[in-house]
Nucleic acid binder design. Structure first.
Length: 209
DNA sequence: AAGACGGGGAG
DNA sequence: CTCCCAGTCTT
């Protein structure tokens, strides 16, 4: 069951995203599953601009899992050094490439890989293939907990169910817009005056009381 | 469900 | 230096 407000938010967000989506290398059309995975794997706990500085060069040096198998952990760590967490990430990439010829396309199988949780798995499959999966990080949680303050659940499992229900068929556009909206408008200090949802956002309504 | 982890960044 | 943070891992 989808409420009128949920439907409205979904449409407003998609429209906002068409005009305000941010451009990043990994969002270019025809990126492979591997290329998108690399980006999402690097983007956790790392600012996007930071990832941009190493992304293209990394893909040039390691265009597929095959090249990662051949590389040493030190070589990998050196290539991603500016990102931080380089040893942890190099080790995980090495383990992934050593055990897989290709990345799986089921979220549960992706999540079996080291350092790949629900966020990276769903984001990778949604952004690379358009799979209709919920993408839920702290930014998204902040957005939903404000706009739908009265119905947004406490538990993680219920939050995923809530989010899954809202994701439309245009999952890629929707989830990208959701992340950008959380980063640009619904920030920790939100810019409610310029927010499209300020007519029905519960957080904003309570602010005004 | 709660805390640990590893390490970056702000103050 | 201390505190906070975000996603994953561990219990």
């Amino acid at each position: 069951m989808t409420s009128e407000t949920e439907r409205r938010f979904r449409n407003d967000l998609l429209e906002w995203g068409r005009k305000n989506r941010r451009e990043y290398s990994w969002r270019e059309p025809d990126r492979t599953l591997y290329e998108v995975f690399v980006a999402e794997f690097f983007l956790t706990q790392t600012p996007a601009d930071n990832v941009e500085t190493v992304y293209s060069e990394f893909l040039g040096q390691f265009p597929s899992l095959d090249e990662i198998v051949e590389a040493s952990e030190d070589e990998l760590a050196e290539a991603i050094e500016p990102l931080g967490f380089q040893n942890m990430r190099a080790s995980a990439l090495k383990q992934i490439a050593s055990s897989h010829d290709h990345l799986p396309t089921e979220p549960e199988l992706l999540m079996e890989l080291p350092r790949v949780g629900r966020y990276v798995a769903n984001a990778t499959l949604c952004f690379a293939r358009g799979d209709r999966l919920p993408v839920l990080d702290r930014n998204v949680e902040r957005v939903y907990s404000r706009v739908f303050r009265d119905t947004w659940p406490e538990s993680e499992a219920e939050q995923f169910a809530f989010t899954e229900r809202l994701v439309p068929d245009e999952a890629r556009a929707y989830n990208l817009a959701l992340l950008d909206f959380g980063a640009l408008i619904c920030q920790t200090e939100p810019l409610c005056e310029q927010c499209f949802a300020n007519e029905y956002c519960i957080y904003f309504r309570e602010l005004e009381e």
